[in-house]
Write a protein that binds this DNA or RNA. Structure first.
Lengths: 252, 252
DNA sequence: AATGCATTTTTGTGATCACAAATCCCGGTA
DNA sequence: TACCGGGATTTGTGATCACAAAAATGCATT
């Protein structure tokens, strides 16, 4: 079965870890509106825990760049700019390219099978027009490759980068996806992995990332700001009712 | 004057931030012995604060990989292995190479002057045999380059990587330094920055990192473990006396 | 002298409280 | 109607407490 779990966070049953996972999940799934203010007590109320674990989880996410904190202490989902997307693009090209190259050397037969399966599932979702599953499977495909590299530190860094770009990847649908060249790139990547060809694997992954994030960067307005994709089921109102949970603890 | 300060952590006067800075400083300066256990109450006692800010600071450092936490909850300074050094080497080559390339495009005259000055100060310290100042200036040189790239996210990632390799960079002295090719590489890097030549800047930086970390990796024993450099003034004993502070709050 | 077991101590976790700074809200003035 | 200003409220921070799990300690047995 495909593995999505982060490096050594498994088997950590602390509340802090659960809060962290919930917030991460909510961010990845675009359940927070960029710019939205997130208060400690709000999160604590929704998840039904005290402030202590929420503080630690949120603070870690701030350190990872998934949230940002104003000098006048208020945590919010970062707004994206063209420059930030381009910076993240270039970093991701390096790191995910490196991981793909390593995967070409290290991937086991089983891992390549996992990767191939994810690629198939992307196509299934895409022919059905199911963009939610599409996104999920794209993520699984990428991380199956990175997991095959067998580099835990590298994997952790890539995860933190995905956390930052994640909320904006909805912007790829449907425009970019339909205009993209389809499964050819992924197919070439898989073949490079199987042929143990690191430089081709790196190039294919780099091209994929470059095209996607360049597309997002081009969505910026004249001020360089990028409008967030419509967030799923999140009211922009100040005081969300308790019970109307935008995320929950038992997600993971 | 040269800037060493991290991205937006300035102007944060919270205790948590001070504890974080203290621990970071102590790690960078090699004041913790790798493998050493670090308890929350010990840190709180030495720094004279409550557990709350210590927890958040330590937990952030664990998330950044600067400390590691056993499943049976105990925080310790990570032990280094050859594989880990090689992984960090390859990641650093990518990211610091990227930063150097960007710096070649973006560096201002003033920034190049800062870089040049740091390079000079390295040579001064080196001719005096002052390896402590040497290390400090090498750090300033590198981060002067990375700051010139003007990429805040990239800078943050590189800082977290230095935090992980930092405690082991003492191992470069005196063997590696005396056998290295001296200031020639740094000189070529500076010239590449001035000539606005990204690919040469990247290559020079990459070569520098590759040589240094390959040297460290070769110090591993037959089990792949790397013996830590002698830590400065840290007793390995279990229960350090209060008052015998291995680090302090007013470092920054 | 070495080993197994029960008790004591240590240690991380989560909840709660107090406080000060930031923010919000609302009425009054120009 | 737009713009302030001062009080009420919200909100992050740090300290303290209680608790359970882990580790350390001491003692009896072989």
């Amino acid at each position: 079965m495909p593995r999505t779990a982060p490096s050594p966070d498994a088997a950590d049953t602390s509340l802090r870890q659960q809060v962290y996972a919930s917030l991460r999940e909510a961010l990845t799934m675009g359940r927070f509106a960029p710019g939205q203010k997130v208060t400690f007590r709000y999160v604590a109320g929704v998840l039904g825990v005290s402030l202590t674990p929420v503080r630690e989880a949120l603070r870690r996410l701030v350190a990872e760049g998934a949230f940002e904190m104003n000098p006048n202490r208020s945590v919010r989902v970062p707004l994206m700019t063209r420059d930030k997307v381009l910076e993240l693009r270039d970093i991701r090209i390096e790191l995910e390219g490196l991981a793909s190259a390593k995967a070409a050397t290290a991937a086991t037969r089983g891992q390549i099978a996992d990767i191939r399966r994810a690629a198939r599932e992307i196509m299934v979702a895409r022919t059905r027009g199911d963009s939610a599953t599409d996104r999920q499977k794209v993520r699984e495909f990428h991380f199956a490759v990175y997991a095959a590299a067998g580099q835990p530190t590298l994997l952790r860094l890539i995860e933190s980068l995905w956390l930052q770009t994640g909320p904006y990847m909805n912007l790829l649908y449907p425009g970019f996806i339909s205009s993209s060249r389809g499964p050819a790139g992924r197919q070439r990547l898989i073949e490079a992995l199987q042929a143990r060809n690191p430089s081709v694997a790196r190039r294919e992954m780099a091209d994929d990332i470059r095209r996607a994030l360049s597309y997002v960067a081009d969505l910026a307005d004249e001020n360089g700001n990028i409008a967030p994709a419509a967030p799923a089921t999140v009211t922009r109102g100040h005081r969300p009712r308790a019970g109307a949970a935008a995320f929950d603890l038992h997600a993971n």
